[in-house]
């Protein structure tokens, strides 16, 4: 057997960390208080923003303006986590405002108007207000974070998001001592969202989600405005959405128009429909089954007929080291 050893004197492209990325990573790691995200830079750091089929940097002015200063690969996924092709991540979506079939959002979301867009931040905050996306992002630099996305339906993808920590926004609006939870609301606009026109939908529009304040302040929680080096396509929740990688995908609410800091645990869309199937927390947990199917394993997409690509689901979707402390002492069988 021949084993090829690379000459140590020749450095490959993947050995060089651009200075900007190096600093961004140091800064992020410091900010995240050594959360164990310091996995080695994977191959092709220089090509970080190059994704097939994607027009790099495309988006509205508030996005393009920030594009030169993106912290590429501020968080990377595991060694076995191959990034899902852009075409799959944008044509296999659950966004029931645009229909219940996985292909519906890609077909129907084109008509959604995302400019202008404002987000109301209210409730238990010292500085409430209505912000456009530019103001919402503030001065924080956009970070690329490659997260695993685990759908409650037992499939998963790996997606490079672009966004800023939600904590940055929350700190700016100064939560009061009464603020214990954060409630998020999606746009309700039946004229552009055919799913909201259905008379037989179970969801009580607008779609609502919620996090405990400490979950919302966690450095992994991302206020997201882009993916694959461009702004969010409409079907993925343009112009601004949440990404909470250790929870099932439906917690990562899309096309957000309102963020409210509240004292009591808010009602959320899915647990209102069926509390037995969808809890408020909905942390990824292989030991707590959905009543209709097992959560022990997942199908990593894309798969094919000949390789279903079944892998074991990880506790907290593999972010256990970073987030388990949020739930210490809690019975996760009870608070699913």
């Amino acid at each position: 057997m021949l084993i090829r050893l690379r000459d140590r004197r020749t450095l490959g492209e993947n050995d060089v960390t651009p200075e900007a990325i190096y600093h961004a990573r140091r800064r992020f790691m410091a900010g995240a208080a050594g959360l164990g995200m310091a996995a080695a830079l994977p191959r092709g750091a220089l090509a970080a923003s190059n994704y097939d089929e994607v027009e790099e940097g495309s988006g509205p002015p508030w996005f393009t303006r920030r594009f030169d200063n993106v912290a590429w690969q501020a968080v990377t996924a595991g060694a076995d986590d191959t990034i899902t092709p852009y075409g799959d991540a944008t044509h296999y979506n659950n966004f029931y405002e645009f229909g219940t079939d996985k292909r519906d959002p890609a077909e129907n979301a084109g008509q959604l108007t995302t400019e202008p867009w404002t987000v109301e931040v209210d409730g238990e905050v010292g500085r409430p207000g209505t912000f456009d996306v530019d103001q919402l992002l503030g001065e924080h630099r956009l970070e690329e974070r490659i997260y695993r996305l685990r759908c409650v339906e037992a499939w998963s993808m790996v997606i490079p998001w672009l966004g800023v920590p939600l904590a940055d926004l929350l700190k700016r609006v100064e939560p009061t001592s009464k603020a214990k939870f954060v409630r998020f609301q999606t746009l309700e606009r039946p004229s552009e969202m055919p799913g909201q026109r259905s008379r037989f939908a179970y969801i009580d529009w607008p779609y609502q989600e919620g996090l405990r304040l400490d979950e919302a302040m966690h450095p992994l929680t991302l206020l997201t405005v882009g993916m694959y080096g461009r702004s969010l396509p409409n079907q993925n929740g343009a112009p601004v959405r949440l990404v909470v990688p250790w929870k099932y995908g439906f917690k990562s609410i899309k096309s957000v128009v309102r963020i409210s800091l509240v004292e009591d645990q808010p009602a959320t869309a899915w647990s209102s429909i069926n509390p037995r199937e969808y809890g408020f927390y909905s942390n990824v947990n292989p030991d707590v089954d959905h009543p209709r199917w097992s959560q022990a394993r997942e199908r990593r997409l894309p798969n094919s007929l000949f390789s279903p690509n079944m892998i074991d689901t990880q506790m907290f979707n593999g972010y256990e080291d970073q987030v388990a402390s949020l739930y210490s002492g809690m019975d996760l069988q009870k608070y699913y």
Binding site: D88, R103, W155, M157, L301, P302, N303, L305, P308
Partner: peptide, 15 residues
């Protein structure tokens, strides 16, 4: 559809 790649990223579920 599946053979020509139009069955989406999860062809088994599609079928």
């Amino acid at each position: 559809q599946v053979y020509s790649g139009n069955g989406g990223p999860e062809p088994g579920q599609y079928l």
